[in-house]
């Protein structure tokens, strides 16, 4: 309908993938192909990187419609807040999301991903059309996992991260699947100087993920795309979640809710707490 009425030039959504437990991103250009679109709990990958790709590949003025579940809608909002594109360049097709499953960790309808279990924004904060019914947000402490982890001793937390990041093979699926990792040139791809070693050994892997977490701090919408993208199941989102809490508590900012607010780490307040300063 959007295509027919020329409200959008192309639609980015999901179609059924290589199995019934998987969905893959698809670009729809003609009204007749709209029937290929699906939305259910197999629709895990963030469509935001695909929307960016489409916006860059098409002439200025092209309107790209994106199927946006809560987290993807927030990521789009955050990118607009960061000046990546204008609100009228995208048509947001909002959908309520009950959480997605990972095809490797169970069949569709079985176990929701960890980021979905703690999700408090199942519906996009902004949309142009909404398909289906909004989903009631979850309750309870979304940072419970973080708090639990923080009870561990420093050495044990280190051991946990060493174990997790020891699995990393530096394929950068996490980075490329992330809706907020959109740097033209990632720091790991800079060679003059070569900031980070390229091996798949620690601490090279640790440093990469630490830098990525810091760079997405206050911007991450906890969509969990990084964890679902990781072919080896590295649990990446915990650190991001901790930084999300820090940014919310300290600076009163939550990513992806406002197109106007300046992102937390691009601004300041004279009243920011500084108990850690000597």
């Amino acid at each position: 309908m959007l295509l027919k009425d020329k409200k959008a030039d192309l639609v980015i959504g999901y179609e059924r993938g290589s199995s019934k437990r998987r969905a893959r991103p698809v670009v729809i250009r003609a009204d007749k192909d709209v029937d290929r679109l699906i939305f259910d709990d197999t629709c895990g990958p963030s469509l935001v990187p695909f929307a960016r790709k489409a916006l860059r590949a098409t002439p200025l003025g092209t309107r790209v419609a994106v199927v946006a579940k809560g987290c993807d809608g927030r990521a789009l909002v955050q990118q607009i807040a960061e000046g990546q594109f204008k609100r009228d360049q995208v048509v947001m097709i909002g959908v309520g999301c009950n959480g997605v499953t990972d095809h490797r960790r169970g069949a569709s309808g079985e176990k929701r991903e960890a980021s979905c279990e703690r999700c408090r924004y199942p519906n996009p904060p902004v949309y142009d059309v909404f398909v289906g019914e909004p989903v009631a947000a979850g309750t309870g402490d979304e940072f419970a996992g973080v708090a639990e982890f923080e009870k561990l001793a420093s050495a044990d937390r280190w051991a946990w991260f060493e174990h997790e990041l020891g699995k990393c093979i530096r394929c950068y699926a996490c980075r490329n699947a992330c809706p907020m990792c959109y740097c033209e040139e990632c720091v790991v791809d800079q060679t003059n100087p070569l900031w980070l070693g390229k091996s798949a050994e620690r601490p090279d892997t640790t440093l990469f993920h630490l830098v990525r977490a810091l760079h997405t701090a206050g911007r991450c919408v906890d969509c969990g795309a990084c964890e679902r993208a990781c072919p080896l199941g590295v649990r990446l989102a915990l650190l991001n979640k901790r930084l999300e809490r820090e940014v919310r508590e300290r600076f009163g900012y939550t990513a992806g809710l406002s197109m106007e607010a300046t992102p937390a780490l691009a601004t300041y307040s004279e009243e920011d707490k500084q108990e850690f300063m000597l």
Binding site: S154, A155, A159, E246, T267, M277
Partner: peptide, 23 residues
């Protein structure tokens, strides 16, 4: 305002480092 911006970065960095287990 350079130091104000820095203060926010430091707070985040310190949190991240301590969270992953750097003393």
């Amino acid at each position: 305002s350079g130091n104000y911006i820095a203060r926010r970065k430091f707070a985040t960095l310190k949190t991240a480092l301590e969270f992953i287990g750097v003393e």
